[in-house]
Design a protein around this nucleic acid. Structure first.
Length: 275
DNA sequence: ATTGAGACCTGTCGGC
DNA sequence: TGCCGACAGGTCTCAA
C-alpha cells in the first residue's frame, strides 16, 4: 500500500517507538531484500540511537547516532508494525514474511513485513546521502514549497513521454505512485495520455495546466494523509483508480471511467472530463 | 539522454 | 474443487 501518503503515515506511527530510542538488537530473518544490503547489517545498527525518522519521496530515512543513515523502502507490499519487544522475540509472534525486526530500547519491536520482497534497506555512510544514486536525483517533495506549477513545468519541458508516465518519474516529483497519479490527473481534468511537454511553453514557462496539475497533486496527497491519520474515518474510495466501468463522479460529467495500460501500469481516467 | 519493456517475487482473484 | 492467467499501490536494468 505504499505511495507517499502511506509512507508518511507509517513514519508518523513509528516515531514514538523509534526516535530517541536505541537499537538493542536487529533480527535479520531474511536478508535477501532488494538493494545493497551491507554485510554485518545487524551488527552495524546495534547500539545506535535513532535521532530522527524522516521521509523523502517513498523512502523512510532514519538518522543514526553514528552519522550514518538507514534508508528503508516498502516496495509494493511492505509494511511496518510495532509490538511489545518481549513477544517479538518469540517465533510464533512472527509471520514468514516478517523479514527484519528492530528491537528498541523504547520497549517496542519494529517489524518489517514484505511478502513480495521488493522492499529495500540500505545503510548509507555519513555525509553521502545527498550524493546517493537515487536520493540525490529525486525531484521536489510535492508537499514542500519547492513544488508548484512552475517546478512541474520545468521538469516536464520537452518531455515526449505521457503526463501519466512523467508523474510516476520520481525525478519529476518525488513520491507520487500509480494511484495518486491517476487521481491527480482526474482532479486537474487533464488526459493521462497527453505529452508531458504540454505543461510548459518552449521557453519552459508554466502553462495554466501546470498550475492546475501541481495543485491537484498537492490536494490528493494532503487529503490522503489526513484520511489515514489514526482515529479519523478512513474512506479509501478513489475518484477513478480501480473504478473502470463506473460513472465519473465529477459534477455534471456523464463519462464512464476507462482503464488503459501506459508503460506497463494501469491508468484510470474519464475520457469525457479529462482532455 | 530519454523512453519503454522486462525483470524482480508472492499473493489473490476471477474464469473455466 | 483445482488449475491458470491476469493483475497488484515500485523500481531497477537494459537496449533501442
Amino acid at each position: 500500500m505504499p505511495e507517499l501518503p502511506e509512507v508518511e503515515s507509517t513514519r508518523r506511527r513509528l516515531v514514538p517507538s523509534m526516535v530517541r530510542a536505541r537499537i538493542t538488537a536487529v533480527d535479520l530473518r531474511r536478508p535477501d531484500l532488494r538493494g545493497p544490503f551491507p554485510r554485518r547489517f545487524a551488527a552495524r545498527l546495534t547500539g545506535q540511537t535513532v535521532n530522527a525518522l524522516d521521509r523523502r519521496a517513498k523512502y523512510l530515512v532514519a538518522s543514526l547516532s553514528s552519522g550514518e543513515t538507514l534508508l528503508m523502502h516498502l516496495g509494493m507490499s511492505g509494511s511496518f508494525r510495532t509490538l511489545p519487544d518481549g513477544p517479538a522475540r518469540r517465533a510464533e509472534a512472527l509471520d514468514p514474511h516478517d523479514h527484519v525486526v528492530f528491537h528498541m530500547s523504547s520497549g517496542r519491536a519494529i517489524v518489517f513485513n514484505d511478502p513480495r520482497r521488493f522492499g529495500m534497506m540500505e545503510l548509507v555512510a555519513a555525509g553521502k546521502l545527498a550524493r546517493h544514486a537515487v536520493i540525490g536525483r529525486l525531484g521536489p517533495e510535492p508537499l514542500s514549497s519547492n513544488f508548484d506549477g512552475a517546478a512541474l513545468a520545468r521538469a516536464c519541458r520537452g518531455k515526449k513521454t505521457s503526463l501519466k508516465a512523467a508523474l510516476l518519474d520520481q525525478r519529476v516529483v518525488a513520491g507520487l505512485g500509480n494511484i495518486y497519479a491517476s487521481e491527480a490527473l482526474h482532479i486537474a481534468g487533464i488526459s493521462p495520455t497527453r505529452r508531458a511537454s504540454i505543461l510548459a511553453t518552449a521557453s519552459g514557462a508554466p502553462r495554466e495546466a501546470a498550475h492546475r496539475l501541481a495543485d491537484a497533486v498537492r490536494f490528493v496527497l494532503e487529503k490522503a494523509i489526513a484520511r489515514q491519520s489514526p482515529g479519523t474515518y478512513r474512506d479509501d474510495r478513489f475518484l477513478v483508480y480501480d473504478r473502470a466501468g463506473e460513472r465519473c463522479s465529477k459534477d455534471g460529467c456523464s463519462g464512464v471511467i476507462k482503464r488503459r495500460v501506459q508503460t506497463g501500469r494501469s491508468t484510470f481516467f474519464c475520457p469525457v472530463c479529462q482532455r
